[in-house]
Amino acid sequence: MSERQEQDMHTDASRAFTTLVTGASAGIGFQVAQRLATTAPGPLVITGRNQARLDEAVASLQGRSGGPVRGVVCDQRHRTSIDQLLEALHGLPPVLQLVANVGVNPVHQQGPGRTHSTDYALFADTLTTNVTHTFYLLSRLLPAMRQARAGRIVLVGSMAYRHGLPGQVSYNVSKSALVGLKNTIVSEYGAAGIGCHLVNPGIVLNERTERLRRRLPAAEQPLPLTEAQVAEAIVSLLADANAEPRGRELDL
Rank of each mutant, 00 (worst) to 15 (best):
H90G: 10
R79L: 10
G23W: 02
G42N: 04
Q84R: 15
A26P: 03
L92N: 07
C74Q: 07
T11N: 11
V72A: 10
G67K: 11
A24I: 03
Q84I: 09
G91S: 06
G42F: 04
T38G: 10
A40E: 06
P43N: 01
G66M: 15
E56N: 09
V21D: 02
L36V: 08
S14L: 13
V69H: 04
G67D: 13
A16I: 11
P41D: 03
V58T: 05
P68I: 13
Q62P: 10
G27W: 11
F30S: 01
D12F: 09
R15W: 13
S25Y: 03
R49E: 05
L44F: 08
A40K: 02
H90I: 15
A59E: 14
A40V: 03
L44E: 01
A13Y: 12
A88L: 04
R70M: 15
D12C: 10
G71N: 03
R15E: 11
A59M: 10
T38F: 00
A40M: 04
A26M: 10
D83Y: 08
M9R: 13
L92F: 05
P94E: 04
R64L: 13
I46W: 00
L44Q: 01
E87C: 12
T18R: 01
L85I: 06
M9W: 11
Q51G: 08
G23M: 03
S25P: 00
A37P: 10
G63F: 06
S14Y: 14
I28W: 01
G23Y: 00
V32D: 04
R53Q: 14
H10W: 11
T11V: 12
A40P: 00
A33Q: 09
H78D: 09
I82N: 02
L86G: 03
Q31W: 12
H10M: 14
G63D: 11
H90D: 14
S65H: 08
P94N: 05
G91H: 03
P94G: 04
G29F: 02
R79F: 07
C74H: 03
N50T: 12
E87T: 15
V32W: 06
R64A: 12
F17D: 03
G23S: 05
G23T: 04
D75E: 09
S60P: 06
V69A: 09
I28D: 02
V95Y: 05
V58H: 01
F30N: 03
V72C: 12
A33K: 11
A37E: 05
G66A: 14
G42M: 01
T22H: 02
V73D: 09
Q62G: 13
I46R: 02
I46K: 06
F30D: 00
H10R: 12
A59F: 08
G91W: 01
E56T: 10
S65E: 01
R70F: 09
G66D: 15
V69M: 08
Q31D: 13
L20F: 02
L36A: 08
C74E: 03
I28Q: 06
L44V: 06
P68H: 13
G66R: 15
C74A: 12
Q84K: 15
R49N: 10
L36I: 06
D55H: 10
A16K: 12
L36K: 07
D83V: 07
A59G: 12
F30A: 00
R49I: 09
T22C: 08
T19P: 02
G23F: 01
